[in-house]
Nucleic acid binder design. Structure first.
Lengths: 344, 344
DNA sequence: GTGAAAGCGCTAACAA
DNA sequence: TTGTTAGCGCTTTCAC
């Protein structure tokens, strides 16, 4: 019963013609009023609005998009709705897009390349005016192909193609900051728990390796396999404990891994940072909790989103060019790092 | 330069007519092939697909939606992208909708009623076939009005209107489980940090109050204002510490608040649960982190999403009726609750 | 400022 | 099975 009024095709909804008739004007005028054109008299505006609300008229965006051949919509593809990192990027994109009068439609890539690919196809079929992909794991070739159809900006992942724009954080620099911090605390045995194949993993690992070389520890690098999860941090810790000697410090590819690692160390009676120091990456919400107090690398997430959207709108509205922006991460020192107590 | 090929109106993209011409068939046939109709010969199918991919044709969903007068799209409004609760509901909705051949478009309500209202207006203007609102904080009157235009199902918030459907968890029961658990641990001074005006807040608060009465603590209830955020947990904790005497246990309206609260308690040197016990609500991902180990109330989030979408599709495709489903929460005991050490 | 008329790219009868 | 022909509801010239 409650559904009787519905079905896939709803009952005839009022159209602009209905409103025009009710207001005693032409459809074109109604259109102008609906789009808030200054070229409609105040009188006409009132009459049209009155008639529209009386009829319960709702502008049909589908028809509007078809007729105008632009959608004033940008598609935002997020790699993973479960990861709060993306929520902040989305905030930034929203804020900027809205100010430019653009609608944002979201899709969740669910950490799967095929799902992301389908989402992009849907965006293109829906004729979005532009695309922001955050943490996208699609191959560069696919993205450049897409960028030929519609302006595209990558957020959070640096991409070296002039066909598209990108706003990302210098992950190698972030890794360098972590290593530098630990080095200055006297640590010489610094291991890295990496992120496997996830986005950002490779540059962080490379940054770790080159930073180690830069401080003369090139022959003491140690990379433990991980995958950006808490369990990975657990496993890396267990392996280190088993195989010894334990590094005096760890730099993990993300905060989650750091938490898993600290947990294992604590379970083995090793205090952090009294015995071992740990630096995470991302500065996610729980890194700041007092009883974790993780020293980590922060990324300006909101700004990434804002900049990505701004770059896109610039290319859409004006004649701005897509470019590559690399933002600087910074070190947030909390309480999981301390001076090295072990002779090097 | 990279943007020179773009602009708001992209260069003429191939249409069905182009494909039809290239394949030497009529546009209607191309349309059939594109919609995977069985009424097109294998031969025609091949020819059309070949021509389409040669031209780089991409079906225009905007035109398709207008002509067919249905969008095969459901709008999903999430109250807050930052809250992982919604990510899981979204997973469930996606899974079901996709199997039914529906596209899902997401919007973020950003914990703001006006923003949610605008998002719904956009959905309606985009002529979505149905709507799922998760954790929506709009007044019932507004939602029933919307439900007159398009089938609507509320996820995570019970709504007593026959005009729409709802799939939610019995929040009062969840609150009762929390209070009961703390009571059995010997706690008599149990405070509640509520969720303000967010969805679920009222029933959890009411459930807390009635459960307290049920165990004979009706005169010892204490409700602290909150709003489902970590900061709210922080503030509530600070206020409790300032005003004393400190309750021996807290039941918070969600996990985020619990974490914020624990954080403040820890900062004040009060161990959890040695000194104070805390129960959260939602069993979000970080509640399970070893370092937090939050005792909390679990909701079958994914199922909520699946059921909500299934109910909607039923009403859309068949003649299913929208109804009200109430699911049972359950208690997950971890390490933030323990026996009361203080004499009652 | 306002109206008339020609599409936007597709779907859906209906005919062939 | 395939082609023909009206629209879907709006925007946008271009006259008035």
């Amino acid at each position: 019963m409650t559904s009787s009024a519905h079905g896939l095709r709803r009952a005839h909804a009022p159209t602009m013609d209905d409103v025009a008739a009710a207001a005693g004007v032409s459809r074109a005028l109604v259109s102008l009023v609906m789009r808030e054109s200054p070229r409609a008299s105040a009188q006409a505006r009132t009459a049209v609005h009155e008639a529209a609300s009386r009829l319960g008229y709702r502008r049909n965006l589908v028809a509007s998009k078809l007729a105008s051949r632009r959608t004033m919509t940008i598609g935002l593809l997020l790699d993973d709705l479960h990861n709060p990192w993306f929520a902040e990027v989305a905030d930034g994109v929203h804020a900027t897009a809205e100010r430019g009068g653009f609608q944002v439609i979201l899709a969740d890539g669910r950490r799967s390349a095929p799902a992301e690919s389908r989402a992009i196809d849907t965006f293109l079929a829906s004729r979005v005016d532009g695309l922001v992909v955050a943490g996208c794991r699609l191959p560069l070739a696919r993205l450049t192909a897409v960028a030929k159809e519609v302006p595209l900006v990558s957020a959070g992942r640096a991409l070296s193609s002039s066909a598209l724009g990108s706003v990302s954080v210098d992950d190698a620099e972030g890794a360098r900051l972590a290593v530098q911090h630990l080095y200055e605390l006297g640590h010489r045995s610094i291991a890295h728990v990496d992120g496997g194949r996830g986005a950002g993993s490779a540059p962080r690992r490379a940054g770790y390796l080159s930073a180690m070389r830069a401080v003369g520890l090139g022959d003491r690098t140690q990379v433990l396999a991980g995958d950006f999860t808490e369990e990975a941090g657990n496993r890396a810790g267990q392996r280190s404990l088993r195989e010894g000697p334990l590094p005096t410090a760890f730099f993990t590819a993300n905060d989650l891994s750091a938490v898993g690692l600290i947990d294992v160390l604590g379970g083995a009676g090793l205090a952090v940072p009294a015995h071992t120091s740990v630096v995470g990456y991302d500065n996610t919400a729980f890194a700041g909790l007092n009883h974790i107090g993780l020293t980590t690398i922060d990324q300006p997430r909101n700004s990434i989103g804002r900049l990505a959207a701004a770059m896109l709108l610039d290319a859409l509205i004006g004649d701005g060019e897509l470019s590559h922006v690399l933002m600087r991460p910074h070190l947030v020192v909390r309480s999981t790092t301390g001076p090295c107590r072990v002779a090097a």
